[in-house]
Amino acid sequence: MASTSHAAGNPWWTIVFPVVTVILLAAYFLGITPSGNNIFYSAVAFLLCGAVFASVHHAEVVAARVGEPFGSIILAAAVTVIEVGLIVALMLAAPDGGPTIARDTVYSAVMIVLTGLIGLCLVMGGRKHFEQKLRVQGTSSYLAVLGTLATIALILPNYTVSASGPSYNQTQLAAVALVSLALYIAFLFVQTVRHRDYFLSAPDDSEDAVNEEHAVPTNARTWSSTALLLVSLTGVVLLAKLFSPKLNEFIIAAKLPNDFTGVIIAGLVLAPESIAAVRASLANRPQTSINLALGSALASIALTIPVITLFTAFSHTPLQLGVSPAKTVLLVLAMFVSVITLLPGRTTVLQGIVHLGIFVIFIVVAAVP
């Protein structure tokens, strides 16, 4: 959860983006706004990005008010709605049903977090504070659940034989969805109730910044953020539906592989929490930074897979989950390096540079398979 001062009022942009989004959508559905030109799609893309950031901000405000464990549930649900909304919009727009869009998005989210985001946090924090300490118990819990889910969702389908291609049959897919949801619920219980101290800020974290997290928003701000959260989430889904054809055109025009769509979706979904994670690292709160980063990846895979499974079951849309051998190698490498760099409990700039190096290779392989 981002460490903004929840006692203050909502920033202007968190109100303007939802309001302008409603105006644009109303004008579009009423036939007032000319659609199909570049100016229209540029406005849609700009508002889509703004609505994503506004959604996460308002979810954090509501989460801060209700407290744990419900706060984490609300925040994870909001991020999942954004991700699933973008995935479903693109799947519906794809002529073949986009069977790999969910897989590419989840894989990209995990890789962006484990390599790019964690690498940036370690470099920025290490550059300013030299060495930063983590609580090994909490970090290892994240990595254990994330590694398990990534393996059964993205690697194992390549080796099952009940269904052709990198896919599960319906029984296997249902089992993976249930296990993903069960593991996330168990993790959430451990994080917020049973072993909450494992995930708290380390003893030498910045005391002022830690105390800032406990500021509780007022009732008026909570209710306004709740309303704006619903408006923002609805706007994200509808704007994604409008923008999906243009995104496909962009991918084709840039001569990028279809898999790169997942990188774009994951990057957009992870952007708000990524900024919060980097800010936390700069403020010498490395445990909060890692919680935000790994929590985003965990929610992305643990909640998206079950929801997409239900969607494909009712819509009879094909779903492929297994990644290519090259991506499997990168995923295993990212998990292996994350264990080596995070579990000792002390991080430096060098470790961050290693993560960023893998991130560069991930982007290159995504753009040029």
Rank of each mutant, 00 (worst) to 15 (best):
L173R: 02
M335K: 05
A293L: 08
L330F: 09
L173W: 02
M124Q: 10
P34C: 07
F199V: 01
L330S: 04
V360S: 09
A182R: 01
H6Q: 11
A153V: 14
I265F: 11
S300T: 07
H355E: 00
S42F: 14
G295S: 03
V161P: 04
I152N: 02
Y107Q: 14
N211A: 12
A276W: 02
A182T: 04
S244V: 01
H6I: 04
K327H: 11
V110G: 04
V237D: 00
W12Y: 09
D259S: 15
L181Q: 08
V161Q: 14
C49L: 15
T218A: 09
T171Y: 14
R127S: 15
A366P: 08
A280E: 12
S72M: 06
S140Y: 06
H195I: 02
S225A: 13
L350T: 10
T14W: 05
G267M: 02
M124F: 11
V61D: 00
W12Q: 06
C121A: 11
A293C: 11
G67K: 12
R196C: 03
G147S: 10
V44D: 01
F70A: 15
I73P: 00
H58Y: 05
T226Q: 10
G138P: 03
A276R: 02
D197E: 15
L30K: 08
L230R: 13
V20Q: 00
S140A: 11
S232H: 11
A2Q: 10
N169P: 08
N169S: 08
R285P: 03
A202I: 07
I265M: 04
V56M: 05
L30W: 15
F70Y: 10
S42C: 05
E207I: 13
T148P: 06
A177Y: 01
V52L: 06
T304D: 07
F17Y: 14
I358L: 14
Q170A: 14
K327S: 13
S281R: 03
L188T: 15
F29E: 09
Y184E: 02
S244H: 03
Q191N: 12
T171H: 13
I265L: 15
P325C: 12
I82T: 04
V44K: 00
F362P: 02
S201W: 10
N10S: 12
V210T: 14
K327F: 13
P272N: 03
L331S: 05
A253E: 14
I73V: 15
E131L: 12
T80P: 00
V110H: 07
V62K: 00
L356K: 11
N10K: 10
A51K: 02
L256D: 07
R346Y: 07
F70S: 12
I358E: 05
L48Q: 03
A144W: 11
P245D: 08
T151P: 12
F189P: 06
D104G: 00
L238G: 02
V210I: 15
H57F: 10
P11I: 06
L178A: 11
R65P: 09
S315R: 14
M91Y: 02
Q170M: 13
F40M: 08
S72W: 03
